[in-house]
Every structure is written in C-alpha cells, then in structure tokens.
Simulated scan of single mutants.
Amino acid sequence: MADPLHAFKGRGAASNPEGRFESIRHHAEDDGWQHAMLDEECLRPRTEVTEERARSVITHNDSPDLSFTAAMNPYRGCEHGCIYCYARPSHSYLNLSPGLDFETKLRAKSNLAEVLRSELSKPGYVASPINIGSNTDPYQPIEKRWRITRAALEVLAECHHPCTLVTKNALVERDLDILVPMAREGLVQVFVSVNSLDNHLAAKLEPRASAPHRRLKAIRTLAEAGVPVGVLVAPIIPALNDRDMEAVLKQAADAGASCAGYTVIRLPYELKALFREWLSLHAAQRAEHVMSLVQQSNGGKDYDSNFATRMRGQGVFAELLRRRFEVTCRRRGLTRARALQLDTSRFVPPRKVSPQGELF
C-alpha cells in the first residue's frame, strides 16, 4: 500500500512531489520496513543552504495588481514553511520540489550586495522603490547567519535608495540601526504579515515564522522607533483564519500600524495538491468546506490567475471579506496599504569599489 502522509514537526509540507517540469515521477510504497526504521533524521528533515552566485538581483514586473515594479529576493525557498506560500511552485525551476524541498533546500544569494551595487551604478539607472520579500521572506531564520538582507539594506542606505520590506519574522528588529535613519529620510516602509492570532493554527500553517503575538510586538517596536509600518492580513483562508481579521487589524492598529492590506489564498500550480494534503492532515473535518469557499471565490476553480480578482477573489464570500476589511479599517483609523511616496530624489549612485580604497 502507499505510504500514508504524516506531518513533519516544524515543516509545513507533508510530501515532496515532483515539480511540473519533471519527466520522471516517483511513487512510494510501504513494505512494512520503513516505519520500523524511522529515526530522528527522517522525522525532522534538516535545512540545507546552498550558496548561489547571482548574476542579477533586481527584477521588474508590470502586474497591474502590484503596488511595486521593482523587487529583490535574497533567498530562493523559505524556511518558514508556510503551506499556503504562492512562491512554492518557483522551486520547480531549480529541479526541486515545491513541497519539503522548498522549505529545506534553500539557496542564498551570497553576492547580492555586490551585484546590487553594480546594478545601481549602471549609467541611466532610475531609482524607484525596491520591494524586498515579494517572493520569499528576507528575514527567514537563515538570515540570522547569512545576513544578506542586512547587507542589501546597507547598500541601499549608503545610496539613499528607497525600499519596502515584507516579512513575518521579528528578526526585522535587528536592523533598526539602518531602518531608523532611512525612515527619517523617507526611504523605507515595512509591512508585517499577520493572518491569525491563533498560535496553534499558526504553528501548523507557518511553522518557522515568528508567533503572531511576536509579530505584533515587532510592529510596535518599529512604529515606536519611527519606522512607517503596516500590517498585511494575508492570506485569508476561508473557514480557517478569516474569523481573526478584525482582531488582527485592531491589535495591529493599537501597536502602531498606520495602514493595512489583505489578500485571499492563492493556489497556483503544484500548490493546489500541497494545500489539500495539509488540510487532510490538520483540518480534515473542515477541508471540504474550506475548498468549497476557495472555489466559490475563484469562479468554481481552485485558482484563477485573473489580475482583476486573484488577490481578493470574487463572489459573495469575497465581497463579505472586502466589506469587513473596509469597515474595520475605518473604525481603527487604518488607511489602505499602499507604498508610501518614498523619496527617490536623494538617490546617489554607489561609488565603484577601488583596489586603492577611498580617502574621502
């Protein structure tokens, strides 16, 4: 018989399916010996980080439903292991699985600061706010050791280049010494993602991200230090965490958030099957109801990539979410989450590194 699914402690995915570009498929069979031989190594997959030498680091998009056109991601894959992460299918481009591989086999762009400096110094470069963390979290646990996000911020601060940060990790507090001076010049804005106040649920949905109460504390710390900060209630999963929307917005506003945004869950490519697996393990009794509401919000499908509806959904449930969000934001004094008009006029191209060093 096929090997039954089981949850891995500290991991979001329960399997490692092949990516959509793979031509070979593997199918596990339980012969009765495997379970007798399971050890700690099997039950707790280790995180492996591979150094990657990037050729370019700033990417551009023209998506009409995104508030930024330039982005930068220090890492591929994310140790947070959020089961709902829409970036999981991107691991297929590396011939790795969007499942456990995405959260255990990571790539760190160790030369990011060097390449960033080179790109900012190109003739004709025009500064526009760079979003850091649009795909994977720039403050995921491995950042504590690799410090690539911090190195990027040091370059941006040196050049007076504006940026926005999106994270669900309190590690962002570490870089207040850089963020506070940037904030004084109108060069930075931070968004902290909090989609539930239920620690038990969060430990299953996003196993290695900071706990919800810790993220709210990070919002307070940033706000009190003078760094503009907003909250993202994202993603909202029908019949799973939508009940916490109003409470999250209230506590974030009380902590000092000035703006808020939300998105509904998106299930592109391989993520559909991974999320269904997660539901069968952690919310089996409501799995059918959750997926029914997801489909109602996507025109009868698990996912609809239409730019006009993919972030907010469509239909009765999506409209109810929109109204709840808008009413609560008005009540709590939160504006809609949009990137501030960060100052691009201060940008000064970085000085090229000279083997002779610098006198001034």
Rank of each mutant, 00 (worst) to 15 (best):
A170W: 06
V172H: 11
V172R: 05
E173Y: 04
M182Y: 07
F191E: 03
V192Y: 00
S193I: 01
S193Q: 03
S193L: 02
S196N: 04
S196H: 01
S196Q: 02
S196R: 00
H200T: 15
L201E: 13
A203S: 15
E206G: 08
E206V: 05
P207I: 08
S210D: 04
A211I: 12
A211S: 12
P212L: 01
R214K: 15
R214C: 08
R215M: 03
R215H: 08
L216Y: 00
K217G: 04
A218D: 07
I219C: 00
R220W: 10
R220C: 10
T221F: 01
A223P: 15
E224R: 13
E224P: 02
A225F: 07
G226K: 10
A234P: 00
P238C: 13
P238S: 14
A239P: 04
A239W: 09
N241E: 09
D244T: 03
M245C: 06
M245H: 05
E246K: 07
E246S: 11
L249G: 10
A252G: 14
A252Q: 14
A255N: 13
A257G: 13
S258C: 12
G261N: 01
Y262C: 06
T263I: 02
V264K: 00
V264A: 02
Y269Q: 09
E270Y: 02
L271F: 06
L271E: 06
K272T: 10
L274M: 03
F275T: 00
E277F: 02
W278T: 01
S280K: 08
S280M: 07
Q285V: 08
Q285N: 15
A287G: 12
E288K: 15
E288M: 10
E288R: 14
H289I: 10
M291P: 05
S292E: 14
V294D: 05
V294F: 05
Q295F: 06
G299I: 04
G300S: 14
K301G: 06
Y303I: 04
Y303S: 08
N306C: 08
N306Y: 06
N306L: 09
F307G: 02
R312E: 11
G313V: 01
G315V: 06
